[in-house]
Design a protein around this nucleic acid. Structure first.
Lengths: 210, 210
DNA sequence: CCCGAGACTGAAACGTGTTCTCATTATGCA
DNA sequence: TGCATAATGAGAACACGTTTCAGTCTCGGG
């Protein structure tokens, strides 16, 4: 079965097909925002998007694939917004915290949607690797952008191993915190605190060679 | 050794009930070890444990509850083994890495079981908070034990905020790495590397390394 | 314009987690 | 002991993700 959903593949197909895909993602987003993971049901998505259930499954081979694709779409928008103007903050830690705080706030404004997307992301297995990579790349890029001096291109010069390692750790902490938040095991404040601690510990200055 | 509250809960009921509970956990563990999350099916657990399906659900209100309870049990055993002798290593980082490496290795020796337990843990919602807390407490305790000088009791003196924050971050990274491993998005080596990086960054000695 | 290959639809069907029903058995108490 | 209550067993039933299938529609090549 052909997978249709990475960015490069998104533009494939006839206009009618792109339109169907758009309607499906829109319906999935709306339903997830309304009732979270459990209430975003495949039959309901198909109905709202006005496609047959079989067609929905041709476009997205599982509920998890669909939700992770929604997540990728959300991060794409967030990444674009972020790239529009320079990240404020004097130190890397400040800038990273700004980005994390802003994105986290956006996510928390739609708690049901975030719950659905986070759980899907966590439950995804190897078959969703392609979609997962899209999301991971967005996150990595956002964090690297923030760690660099404002105005510096994100990939020139190549990020150091240390920088990549730090973005990985921060991404992990962010994800784990979000999971705790969506499952009601941590408050929004707890999430902010965890991130603050992690960023302070990881990006404290001056950074001795590690 | 009854160090944690679960045991008080676990010991409730008649001998026949405790025996049923034991058989259920045993069957769940065996089935998960054999076929992972998907193949640990509730009907099969009930059959292997020789209880009716309804009874299984009276003891564990969902598959997730059951698997997280198995996880708590596993960590209890691991914690006991760990407490038996002092953690080797000259620095906190060394000792934490030792504990993480050893536990991770144990988990990776039963990949299907670990997959099942990790996914259940990640998928758990607020209704599983009690079981989740047991697991989290075990992890926190293990890491604090390793960070302290060998022989120091883990709770005397009270862990500092910084110590607790660090254990939280390390726990998050550990969990995120495990998720990536069980979903085939990272190799065992990748997990070790992630943990090593995180621990080095978080627990680097105050003075630049000698 | 027509044809054939896919794509789409509508509906049924399947698998597994979960719930429900009701008869039977175990338990604790007067 | 005998009874009220709760726990258990056996199995049907239900919900939702997923698959399948027969028929219909669409579209690009001849």
């Amino acid at each position: 079965m052909r997978s249709l959903d990475t960015l490069t593949f998104e533009d494939r197909g006839s206009p009618a097909q792109r339109e169907r895909r758009r309607r499906i993602l829109e319906a999935a987003t709306a339903l997830a925002a309304k009732g979270g993971f459990e209430q975003m049901q495949m039959r309901a998505v198909a109905e709202h998007a006005d496609v047959a259930l079989g067609t929905l499954y041709r476009y997205f081979p599982s509920k998890i694939h669909l939700l992770v694709s929604v997540l990728a779409q959300q991060f794409e928008v967030a990444g674009e917004n972020l790239a529009r103007k320079a990240v404020p903050g004097d130190t890397a830690a400040d800038r990273v915290m700004f980005v994390l705080g802003r994105t986290t706030q956006t996510l928390q404004r739609e708690p049901n949607l975030t719950e659905a997307l986070t759980r899907a992301f966590m439950f995804a297995d190897a078959s969703v690797a392609q979609e997962i990579d899209v999301v991971a790349a967005h996150v990595r890029r956002m964090l690297l952008l923030a760690m660099r001096e404002p105005g510096t291109p994100v990939d020139v010069p190549e990020p150091t191993e240390e920088e990549v390692a730090i973005t990985k750790v921060i991404g992990d902490v962010w994800l784990a915190s979000l999971v705790q938040w969506v499952t009601g095991r941590a408050s929004a404040h707890d999430v902010a605190t965890s991130l603050d601690v992690a960023v302070r510990l990881l990006l404290r200055e001056p950074r001795p060679l590690a």
